[in-house]
Amino acid sequence: MTENEGTPRDTAQRKKDVLARLEKEVDIWVASADGDGRPYLVPLAFLWDGESVWLCTRRANPTGRNLAAGGRTRLALGHTRDVVLMDGEVSTHPSEDVPVAAIEAFAAKSGWDPRKSGPAYVWFRVRPVAVEAWIEEPEIVGRHIMREGVWADGA
């Protein structure tokens, strides 16, 4: 079984667990689509700054192009029995527009400093607008812990 042994967590505990995972985990799944709706799914290193997720990749690769053009993404943490899904609005930033503290925290967490990889790399800030979290079937009800950018009551 999983860590909750079938007892559903309340909204506040789910939010606490999601925030802890955002602090701890190094990589996140990033879903995007091109103008024709062709999907892309890749893992990227990330930083949670307490309000947003920061990602960095080459602007010219499919994910970079899609994030820059589409302005939306779905992020995912965890495996299929302990899920966190985050829908967010994306903004694109050159390195000089990203807070130095965010870049340094990203580099410390991931072991990679994109500033050393050249100007082809850009940053994407993802502001969450919806978050779902559940561990297996008993938690499907109540999985929406953020909607329209607002944490649910009790979160």
Rank of each mutant, 00 (worst) to 15 (best):
M86F: 03
V42E: 14
V90S: 09
G64C: 03
S110R: 00
A69W: 12
E104F: 06
R59K: 15
D87I: 07
V126Q: 03
K116N: 13
D36K: 14
P114V: 01
L75C: 00
G88V: 09
S110F: 00
R58S: 12
R72K: 11
E132W: 15
E51Q: 13
A101E: 14
W54A: 00
G71S: 08
A105L: 06
G78N: 04
D113L: 01
A31G: 12
H93R: 10
L77N: 07
R65M: 15
N61C: 12
T63S: 14
L77I: 02
L44Y: 10
A102F: 03
R58I: 09
G88H: 02
L44N: 08
T57A: 06
I140G: 09
A68V: 03
G78Y: 02
H79V: 14
W123I: 08
V129P: 11
W134G: 01
D34P: 01
Y121M: 14
A31C: 05
G50S: 02
A76H: 08
T73S: 15
V42Q: 07
G50E: 04
R125I: 08
I140E: 08
R72N: 12
R127K: 15
K116R: 13
V42P: 10
G142E: 12
E104S: 08
E89P: 07
A107M: 05
N61R: 10
G118A: 13
V98E: 08
F124W: 04
A133I: 10
H79F: 11
V100H: 12
D49H: 05
R125D: 02
A102E: 07
R115K: 03
A108Y: 03
K109M: 03
F124Q: 05
P128L: 03
E136I: 02
H93K: 09
R115T: 06
N66L: 06
G50P: 05
W29T: 05
V122K: 14
P94T: 07
S110V: 02
R58D: 10
T73I: 01
A45R: 13
G50V: 08
Y40P: 02
W48T: 01
D49C: 02
V42N: 15
I140Y: 13
L77S: 01
V30S: 11
P94Q: 06
E51M: 11
E137V: 15
V122W: 12
L41C: 15
G37Y: 00
V53R: 04
E51W: 04
